[in-house]
């Protein structure tokens, strides 16, 4: 099923082994975009490692600062990806075919 391609498009040829530098960069950018939520989940899970109770508890202001900082960083990086992807190519590079 996966090799069902519309004839007359350049995807008919097998993809090249090496990509030109620009598309290589774009793909790695996409990899990074995919990894971002995993990083976010890991960072948001960090507070679970903090000690609760005890003699030296974490103050709420610190927790708030941490959570919102991580949040802001995630948003900023996401904006960066959005801008980079838009500048990289007008259409989605991963789109093999636009639907009709």
């Amino acid at each position: 099923m996966s090799d069902r391609r519309e004839p007359g498009k350049d995807q008919v040829q097998p993809p090249p082994v090496f990509l030109e530098r620009q598309s290589y960069r774009r793909r790695r950018l996409m990899d990074a975009a995919r990894l971002l939520p995993l990083l976010g989940a890991a960072l948001f899970a960090v507070p679970l490692l903090w000690p609760t109770g005890g003699e030296n508890p974490i103050r709420m202001s610190a927790a708030i600062t941490y959570v919102f900082s991580v949040w802001a960083v995630l948003i900023l990086v996401s904006v960066g990806f959005g801008v980079a992807a838009r500048r990289g190519q007008p259409s989605d590079p991963q789109d093999p075919e636009r639907d009709a």
């Binding site: 989940a41 948001f44 899970a45 507070p47 679970l48 903090w50 609760t52 109770g53 508890p57 974490i58 103050r59 709420m60 202001s61 610190a62 927790a63 708030i64 600062t65």
Partner: peptide
């Protein structure tokens, strides 16, 4: 504000680990 937060009833980091992950 941050000082008030630390001084309040909820001023200490205290969270149920299971609920934190589950609700997320």
């Amino acid at each position: 504000t941050l000082q008030r937060i630390d001084a309040s009833e909820i001023g200490i980091w205290q969270v149920d680990h299971g609920r934190w992950a589950t609700i997320t």
